[in-house]
Design a protein around this nucleic acid. Structure first.
Lengths: 137, 137
DNA sequence: ATGCAGATGTTATAAAGAATTACATGAATT
DNA sequence: AATTCATGTAATTCTTTATAACATCTGCAT
């Protein structure tokens, strides 16, 4: 449910994605040109990739390595129209206030802040919790 | 077990970490100076943060926001001596060959490549699998 | 064989992002 | 008032990324 949100959070620069996927920057940009992925951008226009993007790139690579061309890949995994979401910081306050009527935006906010916090010795991850424990575990 | 590995993978540049934690770059570097975190570095010496690093930073922020000073934070969450690990690409071949006697390094390798791949329509995440399904789910 | 399209490499140039260092500042302590 | 802690700010340099143009290679159709 917000698993999707997490996987869509744009977090990695292209350099990291290169290492994770063993694709060249050239390839990654080329695949973007063909709408196989649609990474987010920073204010300065630099690409930021989500886990979903990396996942798709790994799938693409697998198919490419099998000799399938871009057209084929498109048919098999479709094209991407919605860009991955930037982690943006808005109103860091009222987060705790509302709990029921949280808009998607606000939830997104909370998510970011609690993103990685789980039950650690001496830590009490707030509101969310079960939602986030899934992240790694 | 390799959950730890995943959480230690250095993936984020400082800009992203700023947004995720709402700390300034100045603060993040200052905390590093005081060994509260020890992010990895790129070849070009730029910091790369792992989920663990972000997690620790969120804890630090929480304590700081409560008025606790660095000395106090150190006592409470300890200092960091081992840097987060860089995702490095080595021998992309023999990955499939060995399955039993995989060194930690090799497993690390595999992990990176399969990092985000899970059961997707039309996808068959290789070897690992159970190990990785935990990542998000 | 020739030519073309697809996929990727390479190079040049500009801009964004980040590193380090030094100095400034506000608050709390002595 | 002087000092220390935590952070802001500014200057400079280096790294990383973006775009665009051109080069190369491969497979296929002529």
């Amino acid at each position: 449910m917000n698993d999707e949100l997490r996987r869509n959070l744009a977090l990695f620069p292209i350099g990291i994605v290169q290492k994770l996927t063993e694709l060249t920057a050239r390839q990654i940009r080329y695949y973007e040109q063909h709408h196989l992925i649609q990474p987010a951008r920073t204010e300065g226009n630099q690409r930021l990739f989500s886990f979903n993007d990396v996942e798709r790139l790994l799938e693409i690579k697998k198919l490419i390595d099998q000799g399938i061309n871009i057209a084929g890949v498109k048919k098999m995994i479709g094209t991407q129209t919605v860009p991955s979401e930037l982690p943006s910081i808005d109103q860091p306050d009222e987060a705790v206030a509302k709990t029921k009527e949280m808009s998607d935006e606000e939830l997104h906010e909370l998510l970011k802040q609690e993103l990685v916090l789980r039950g650690r010795p001496g830590t009490q991850g707030s509101l969310i919790q079960g939602e986030l424990s899934r992240f790694f575990h």
